[in-house]
Design a protein around this nucleic acid. Sequence first.
RNA 1: UGGGGCGUCGUCUAAUGGCAGGACGUCAGACUUUGAAUCUGAUUAUCAAGGUUCGAAUCCUUGCGCCCCAGCCA
Length: 562
Amino acid sequence: MTTSNETQARNFLQEIVAEDKQAGKYGGRVHTRFPPEPNGYLHIGHAKSICINFGLAQQYGGKCNLRLDDTNPLTEDTDYVESIQRDVRWLGFDWDDRKFFASDYFEKLYAFAEQLIRQGQAYVCSLTADEISEWRGDFTTPGRDSPYRNRTVEENLDLFRRMRAGEFPDGKHTLRAKIDMASPNPVLRDPPIYRIRHAHHHRTGDTWCIYPLYDFAHCLSDSIEGITHSICTLEFENRRPLYDWIVDALIKGERPHQYEFARLKLTYTVMSKRKLLQMVSDKSVSGWDDPRMLTISGLRRRGFTPESLRDFATRIGVSKSDSWIDMGVLELSIREDLNERAPRAMAVLRPLKVVVTNYPEGQTEMLEVANHPQKPELGTRQVPFSRELFIEADDFQEVPQKGFFRLAPGKEVRLRSAYFIKCEEVIKDAAGNVTELRCTYDPATRGGDSPEGRKVKGTLHWVPGTAPTAEVRLYDRLFSVEHPDKDKDRDFKEFLNPNSLEVITTARVEPMLAQAAPESRFQFERLGYFYADPKDSTAGRPVFNRTVTLKDSWTKEQAKGK
RNA sequence: UGGGGCGUCGUCUAAUGGCAGGACGUCAGACUUUGAAUCUGAUUAUCAAGGUUCGAAUCCUUGCGCCCCAGCCA
């Protein structure tokens, strides 16, 4: 019998790296890289890639570089560079002194381009963008050779140098690799590798007016950095022949190889940077770090931990099959982590006043409450108890439905770590709304202990009548359907969940919570895990973000009854 | 349509010609001072059809389905 503990199943990338290392390839060296383009914030799909690339390096005694792939000055920005570094570090990974930019290599890449020209493997093409597209053909018809394909090396070199010198406007010429216009793979039909762009670059400023394209820059950046395994997502698989062609043409000796895995797809969300950017710009969300966003910064602000995200990444595995991960898996990862480490606390979201009629007026006693039921080492705290208190409005039903074992007229429940109380009277306003409950308590049940084995099924959380109020933000899935961008004819934003955020400003919290430091995490008993918002919390007035609810079999039970 | 890739429980993922395993989910139960956690049990899968073989998820053939590619984006 094998169990997951005994079998250390390797994913296909680990297998490739292990075999290469075993075979002594690259002298046993393992060197990966995480190469985001700084044109947006990192999301949970990137987190998967980060864990794969940095993880592989860790597991096989290698290194992983951080490389900002900044070859398109139109979309890139230093703000993004900063956020990327912050997010990778927060996730728990370290590139030491190996932070690189593709733009570090512009001079070298230019030299490689000239070399390609001299080798007769690249030419300056003067077709317009539209013409290039036309001449490329389509899936069924081969492309036609550009009329500029046979320019001499000298002419190409001259033109290319003048492109660099800024003699031509945008789009006037491109440098193209001379491969095969009839290739069944359109990527190989003389792909442009340099274009003219008179644009300000976030790092090189106005030094350049020509910029290399991804296919040219990426494989050569890998080569320059001594990358051994260049890992990317499946949609780049078509480009691997081009990767190899360029590297073969220009690099002698050891060279990197590209491998592809399936990108992460999560239900109830969208993953493309374009769509995330759109929601940020049109204010569908409050920003890149809106806690509903599946960006790393959004998840961080929601209260996710780096550990839970890393756990998620290993849990979902790595393969080449195009698959959907259920949002429940992400929720499981954070619940599992926070169940272990989050101290418990009591907060009431929708307060219902309870008066304990037989409790002496003006008396207050301190009750000791455990911070974690399974971890006595996390200690206890004191919560004041007196004649007036609040319970959750949901925890009372005047006419209890089937299976409801919380408070109801004549019924007895336990107040967590306090006393048993019994509902004697229901007070309503003129409109018939329940505004207050009159209860009696049993002094023999102090601490919540059951005397002579008396059973009560329900245990409710509560806060003192003097409890401070706090703002609580209840977050839910951003989209209300599993696959918001599956239907190409419908805008994904039609599926935004209108209830993805509920702000409650009148929640009541136990006294200790009013002092909660920003970024601290708690389990609000019976409600979920909450995180003191790092931006909006102020001294003595924390704002709590709901990270995730507790598993709730009662709601499920209720739904079944209907 | 040409090329490339991928098809294993509801979902994700193992198997490297030798008992289709694990996790999540679901269902049932135990326990419970959180309807949480924990524990126990159950549940369900090799895209199809042929072939090779003592033996096929794995190899071969044919078919089917899904994904990617026709940016001077990455």
